[in-house]
Amino acid sequence: MLAADAAGVTYKPRPNEAQWQVEASVFECRLSQPIPYYGEGVFLRRAGEQSHFLLRSKSSRLKTGQARLQAKTPVWKPVADARKLGLVPVKQGRVPVTLKRVLAEQMLAELHRGMEVVFTRAPWYGGRESVDVGLTPVNFALAYAKYLDCLTGLLPVNYDQVARTAIYFPSGRDELRPTETRKLDRVALYIQADPAVVAYVIDGHTDSVGRRSDNLELSRMRAEGVARYLIGKGVDREKIATRWHGERYPVSTNRDRKSRAKNRRVTIRLDKGELELPST
């Protein structure tokens, strides 16, 4: 619905056109409502991250600054009520409002109570009238239940969080510590859930303590130990490329204990698409 009066312009769905859409996977949960003539409001949560809200616009409609966020009783209810949820930042553009988890959860709670959620802000062109952009609770309950079901099935991590993983080791040893096996468990879980990941490169490294030949052998043992662990968790061995480099590629100086600890590592790289291995 696009309505205009002396007070300003309002964008929100009419009751008979209100839709809530859910897109669900183990990687991401998305709950959205199209807003006619404006864009859409989106509640989004990626695996391994907190939920947030995005207000998307087909064109710049709101002026940079702060918008008033309120929960209001729909006009068809007999008793009018309104709750102030606060002032929220607005940035002129196609995504004028981005809200973090706390406010996003408050908005969901108000919609679940049957309230409309409305943003009020001056228009981008500098007019005196305000612009209201609203989400309606019509048809919300069923979609919200599906969204909550999706949240329970999200993976604990997303691709960005595991695409480059470092596993660290004690000095001169190749044993995997519990903190590091937990990392590997998350990597293995993600790999098995995402068929788009087609190859995994495992690189073993050491610090500069000891002889180079010994360090090369130690880096091999570390890399192969990580590969065995992942294979034991169900990762396809045919997709694993294992390499070892000794002390050749430090990520930090070897001048002190903390720096050496950063170099005692195995790195795991996940690749989507064709894998090209650089020469060693």
Rank of each mutant, 00 (worst) to 15 (best):
V226P: 13
E238T: 15
I268D: 00
R212Y: 11
A143G: 04
Q33E: 07
E224R: 03
A24I: 13
Q106G: 15
P250F: 00
T120A: 13
R46Y: 10
Q92K: 10
S51M: 11
A143H: 02
C29K: 00
T64V: 09
I35V: 12
K63S: 03
D5I: 00
H205T: 09
L275R: 03
N215L: 14
V131W: 00
A80T: 10
A188Y: 05
D81V: 11
G126M: 00
L277A: 09
F43Q: 08
V266K: 01
D236S: 04
L103K: 03
T206G: 05
K233F: 08
G210W: 04
S219F: 04
R186L: 15
V118W: 08
T206D: 06
S279R: 07
G232N: 12
L85M: 03
M115T: 08
Y37F: 12
L155W: 01
M221I: 11
G232F: 13
R269C: 03
G273T: 14
R61A: 14
L103H: 02
D203C: 10
G172D: 15
T10H: 04
S171M: 10
T120H: 09
V138E: 11
G172K: 12
E247T: 02
V26M: 09
L135R: 03
D174Y: 05
L54A: 02
L270V: 08
L103C: 01
Q33T: 09
L103A: 03
P250M: 00
A47P: 01
T181M: 06
F140G: 07
Y168Q: 08
F140L: 06
W20G: 00
N254Q: 01
Q50L: 12
L54E: 07
L2K: 01
T152H: 15
L230D: 14
K239E: 05
L277W: 08
K272C: 05
R212P: 14
V162A: 07
S51P: 08
K77S: 14
C150A: 05
E247I: 01
P195G: 07
P250Y: 00
Y190C: 01
A7W: 08
H205Q: 12
L87K: 14
V226H: 07
D256F: 06
A141Q: 05
P278S: 07
S219M: 06
Q92C: 11
A109D: 15
S213F: 00
Y11H: 07
A163S: 14
A3N: 08
N16I: 14
R46K: 08
W76R: 13
S60W: 04
K12I: 10
N254E: 05
A3T: 12
G246K: 02
F53V: 09
D203S: 12
L85F: 02
G126A: 04
Q66N: 13
A193E: 00
G273Q: 11
V251L: 01
E276V: 10
A227F: 03
T206I: 07
Y144W: 08
V157E: 02
P15F: 13
R269T: 09
D194L: 12
N158R: 00
V79S: 04
S208T: 09
P195A: 08
G93I: 03
S171R: 09
A80C: 03
R173D: 15
A18F: 04
L111F: 11
M115S: 14
T10K: 04
V88E: 01
T64C: 09
T165S: 13
Y125T: 06
F140K: 03
V102R: 10
L155M: 01
Q21G: 04
T165F: 07
